[in-house]
Design a protein around this nucleic acid. Sequence first.
DNA 1: GGCGATTTGTCCGTATGTATC
DNA 2: AGATACATACGGACAAATCGC
Lengths: 234, 234
Amino acid sequence: MHLSRRIEPLYRELAAVLREELQRMSPGDYLPGELQLAARFAVNRHTLRRAVDELVLEGRLLRRQGKGTQVLAKPLIYPVEAGSAYSQSLSALGHRVEARLIERIRRPGSGEECRHLQLADGSELLELATLRLLDGQPMSLIRHRFCASLAPLLADYQGGSLRQYLGQRDLPLARTFSLIGARLPSREEAAHLLMPRHVPLLSVLTLSRDPAGRAVELAQSSSRADRFQYQVAT
Amino acid sequence: MHLSRRIEPLYRELAAVLREELQRMSPGDYLPGELQLAARFAVNRHTLRRAVDELVLEGRLLRRQGKGTQVLAKPLIYPVEAGSAYSQSLSALGHRVEARLIERIRRPGSGEECRHLQLADGSELLELATLRLLDGQPMSLIRHRFCASLAPLLADYQGGSLRQYLGQRDLPLARTFSLIGARLPSREEAAHLLMPRHVPLLSVLTLSRDPAGRAVELAQSSSRADRFQYQVAT
DNA sequence: GGCGATTTGTCCGTATGTATC
DNA sequence: AGATACATACGGACAAATCGC
């Protein structure tokens, strides 16, 4: 049925055409519907979808069921000072920083978590999950874990800088070490961060201590690697 | 035709089942064929393929046309001190470290490279590319860039620890800063590192200075994020 | 809020191409 | 050359999310 032996599969040729056309579109624009595009290229809708899959995987398009497929902006990279608090270094650069609390749960800690926090194995932890936005764009997810005894102190936290919140309540924190890795996002993480599945997350595990040296917070931040770099000064 | 409203799409449920079953298989094992698996779960082959797609994207499976679909090894993660020399921290832990020189070229530096190295714009650079292996497994690619005037000093380098080589020639180096990011490998990088395209690289740009404070080496290391984490102590 | 219309998401069926052994 | 495996492409159907009326 195929007219000639193509060197490239059809869906990849389509992807190349679309990729080229995207450059003449503006971020935020919507692609024509799938049926419409499939008709234009005279291919089956599945073949067109497969082509669009490629561009979604490359981070160029965002698909939303019921709405359409949108052209994404080319990402900027924000270098973040690894040593300082999350919000400070960026807002100092004139960026608008937001932190939204998206989850607050109590649960028993894993062995490793309790070890880091110097708690007895299986101690109850308070976990807060926050979504960080930079200039309105979702950038990072952070899971903060505290000993559950700190729950009263954190009861009023609803968003904004967590470091500042704790500092105002006489619990200033300082980082003691960080473990930096990278991985692909889970489906939930990708959904929260409005990002494609294939773009890596830069993942940083940090342990923070109070002035007396007690381990207080174990935080796991996961940031879009296409928008973030961590800078470590020595 | 659907029996009930599923919370998760079928292909994701299948993926979860397969992911679980993979843990009882050994690296190198082949999955049963797609038709066979589809029959076992009583789904269409496309639906099964979609489930396997998920696991391939997660880096758990390797598909090869005509051969089959193979279980990949669960990677070990080596924490590496970000501040110290590459070889030292790992060989101290009892790992076998190798460095192979794979390229040596002279070329004009880009604006950014020259700026970091405090050279005039367009100055000639010497670039060495090394492949690092840990316990026989390729782990990292490093591109070292020096001012070309150092070429005589580096003429004899053929592999092994570069820091040690320079230290023995009265040019000890110390890191001044690191910029850490993550990205997916290029086709070439994936080939050198014998890794799948969808596993992220942890990428670290470091500038090193000699005891007099002169910027000497700009190094860009790219390490398999499924095997490496960087540890930063503060 | 309800109700279509539109758009993307999932699933099935079938056929054929291509790589490997 | 034949068998088997994955890859691509076509087709149809319905589900689920979104939006406007």
